[in-house]
């Protein structure tokens, strides 16, 4: 069997992913995660001295905490199988990535195993998150300096 034939066969056998269904599931579940986040934000606004602007920090922390607990109990895995991108794109996906790699490398010890591998996947999230924040802030600073927009 040559390379071309193999590729043809492979394409025939690979099941087509249900794009529309996956998109719909991600849309609904991602929206549901955000709804929970909205309730958490409302909780902080109502019961503590947070405004809409300042409530975002504790909300993010709480959502990550929830995702970490659910990952530890093995619930997030089941949820993610159905939700797909709906569970990975919101901030809860970050918590899941951190804890699941920590659990995976537990047997290698606390320092080289858990410590060294915890941010294996989340590290790229942090790196590119910081970089894109820098890029956006730079663009905004330039636009403000030119007088196009205000802060």
């Amino acid at each position: 069997m040559d390379e071309k034939k193999y590729q043809q066969l492979e394409q025939q056998l690979t099941p087509k992913p249900a794009y529309l269904k996956n998109c719909l599931a991600a849309f609904i579940t991602g929206g549901f995660v955000c709804l929970i986040g909205q309730f958490v934000a409302l909780f902080y606004i109502t019961f503590f001295d947070f405004t809409e602007r300042t409530a975002s920090n504790p909300t993010v922390a709480t959502m990550i905490f929830f995702a970490m607990l659910l990952t530890g109990f093995g619930v997030y895995k089941k949820f993610a199988q159905f939700a797909g991108a709906g569970s990975a794109v919101p901030i809860t996906g970050f918590g899941n990535a951190v804890v699941s790699s920590a659990i995976e490398h537990r047997s290698e010890g606390y320092v080289l195993g858990v410590g060294g591998n915890m941010f294996k996947l989340a590290g790229s999230v942090i790196l590119y998150g910081v970089f894109s924040a820098f890029a956006v802030a730079l663009i905004k600073s330039i636009l403000v300096a030119l007088g196009v927009i205000s802060w």
Binding site: I45, T51, E52, R53, A55
Partner: peptide, 9 residues
């Protein structure tokens, strides 16, 4: 004057 929910509530 603020359009923040906190102030409104």
């Amino acid at each position: 004057v603020s359009a923040d929910s906190k102030v409104f509530l």
